[in-house]
Design a protein around this nucleic acid. Sequence first.
DNA 1: CGCGTTTTTGAAGCCCCTCAAGTGTAGTGG
DNA 2: CCACTACACTTGAGGGGCTTCAAAAACGCG
Lengths: 240, 240
Amino acid sequence: MPNPFVQKLGRYASLSDEDTRLLESACRDTRRTAARRDLIREGDPPGPVFVMLEGWACRYKLMREGGRQVLALLMPGDFCDMHVAVLDEMDHSIGTLTPALYTEIPRERMETLIASSPALTRAFWIAQLVDEGVLRAWIVSMGRRDSTERLAHLMCELYIRARNVGLCIDGHCEMPLTQIVIADALGLTPVHVNRVLRKLKVAGAMELGRGTLHIRDVESLARIAGFDDNYLHRRLKLAA
Amino acid sequence: MPNPFVQKLGRYASLSDEDTRLLESACRDTRRTAARRDLIREGDPPGPVFVMLEGWACRYKLMREGGRQVLALLMPGDFCDMHVAVLDEMDHSIGTLTPALYTEIPRERMETLIASSPALTRAFWIAQLVDEGVLRAWIVSMGRRDSTERLAHLMCELYIRARNVGLCIDGHCEMPLTQIVIADALGLTPVHVNRVLRKLKVAGAMELGRGTLHIRDVESLARIAGFDDNYLHRRLKLAA
DNA sequence: CGCGTTTTTGAAGCCCCTCAAGTGTAGTGG
DNA sequence: CCACTACACTTGAGGGGCTTCAAAAACGCG
């Protein structure tokens, strides 16, 4: 079974066999957790780098009044908090959405990896930059897109990212998100997310149910989303 | 006149005289521009690192239908796009809001700086992380705060940042933002921003006019904003 | 002074929320 | 195999926050 972490980084820089071996060896010590478990909480001192190998997680922040905002969705291959160690404490939490398999890479190990290979360094940097691009795209969505465009945009993003790590088989892919999580991510209510999903389904653009996303019409979905070809290294059209 | 770039980085790591000298020398070659000029545009190949020395600028992205979303506000001392060079092209633009004085540090020069001093490296990293924290906070604002909380939160953020580079004198500071720019940043309309500003003024929390922000009641403003003490390294209470 | 931009104010409407109730759908234990 | 439970999903009705449209007043810069 291919390591999605290696797969993802391999898209950003051409890795030597030695690089691949280093990465895989860094992922050897894995852990399993149930769904809805926090890997790290707001206020905790920053820990190691987390690498998702199976299952999904999210960064989130709880509001005082009880709501929550999801700041990023993490799928297999994603890692996070590479250099957060210089800060005193976490300003948000990370929790699993599904049962998950992940690795914790200690900070020193991470530094060794980076020091040992320019290609790995480059791959980590690019991954970091892409993540920042995703953050900015979320802000654009929240600020200037209505609920339908917003949901369509998120699904385009997740579809591409999932495909990049081999989680999709033509038109459909595993996407274990509840409408509640989607609402938390988009700044909407679950009730409204439900209605928008119905609308997109009736429009023949996409369908989401039972943990699976079915793209019915990529072109249409991308048009609704106002999806930017430049985003995520223009990968939407490939192998649709 | 103190260099705000040096001032800001000095808050993140203790810089030696040599570090300071290196930074100042990297800022020697300055440029002036008028307001509303783009430093770099979406689609351009990534350029050098920009360092703001005087005046304000913003990252922004234009929507197809004509609207725009401001992604970050840049004030003296801020720099950006440190390691964006690995990407093919910019996914957003950066433009001045006021007449500005800035430096372009070539990428090689930047690498030399980082290689020459661990303290500088650390300072750059922390600055980068704080910026990411700001991005995440914006998402939280857009997703889970109403217009009043959102505006109050932005003003708290900008007030602290401005104070950190010496732009504030007890209760008030220079803040050359039009209501239009604020609306573009918060995902609101200028009309509504105007009404919210009035509300905050009537409430005795703050006042914004003629390019100046007057904080009338920090406690009250922070309470309205739901401002997180953890945010920006808990600096709100200092020297209020 | 004159002109463009920003700010201000009002009225009407829509998008999304809130509240509420009912219908699946897994997972658990008897 | 069927209660029982806990969520997630679905659907409806009503309300509020913010937008849209419009126009006037104030500001700032040549």
